Simulated scan of single mutants.
Amino acid sequence: MSELASDVLAQIQSLCEQGDQFAGVDDYAAALEQYWQAWDLLPEPQTDYEAATWILAAVGDANFLGGDYEAGRDNLSLAMHCPDAIGNPFLHLRLGQCQFELKDLDHAADELSRAYMGAGAEIFEDEPKRYFKFLKTRLDPPEGGW
């Protein structure tokens, strides 16, 4: 994993905070502009940086929440090549949700099960019920039930 210069990291964090503010008021297009500006500050190869993981997580989240499931799938799949992404329950959740919405149910089940294994049923609590309901059709119930 490569390290960023502190001034570059500060710029990236500032842009991502601005993006988060836009996302917080459902202005996903403006949020994405900020996140991509932050991405452009990463030296190549961008996927070597921890910041790439959380930038792409924010991008994929904005894609998902904005209904652009193809872009969400693509950006979250790219995030899986970044440091500490594999095993991150949130990334697996959003990637699985995008794949579910795209009717790629086998991949959706795989990613949603990874989210469940990493964070338990709690990760689905604030999400539409259809995702956990679908996952339960693909997994054996844990001891004691769902």
Rank of each mutant, 00 (worst) to 15 (best):
M1W: 12
M1D: 12
S6P: 02
D7T: 14
L9N: 00
A10L: 06
Q11S: 15
Q11G: 09
Q11M: 12
I12F: 04
Q13S: 10
S14R: 11
Q18C: 02
Q18K: 14
Q21H: 12
Q21D: 10
V25D: 05
V25H: 01
D26H: 15
A29L: 06
A30L: 05
A31I: 14
W36F: 11
W36M: 13
A38L: 05
D40T: 08
L41P: 01
E50W: 14
A51C: 09
W54H: 04
L56W: 14
L56T: 14
V59Y: 04
V59F: 07
D61M: 04
N63H: 14
F64H: 03
L65K: 04
D68R: 11
Y69A: 05
Y69W: 10
E70K: 09
E70A: 11
E70F: 09
S77H: 12
S77W: 12
M80Q: 13
H81M: 14
A85G: 02
A85E: 01
G87C: 09
N88I: 05
N88T: 07
F90P: 07
F90S: 02
H92M: 02
L93F: 01
R94T: 11
E101K: 07
E101Q: 02
D104H: 13
D106W: 07
D106T: 01
D106L: 08
A108L: 04
A108I: 00
D110R: 14
E111D: 02
E111N: 09
R114I: 00
R114S: 04
A115Q: 06
G120T: 10
A121S: 15
E122S: 01
E122A: 10
F124D: 00
F124E: 00
E125Q: 13
E127F: 08
R130G: 11
Y131L: 05
Y131C: 02
F132S: 08
K133E: 15
F134I: 08
T137D: 14
P141Q: 09
E143T: 04
G144I: 14
G145P: 06
W146Q: 13
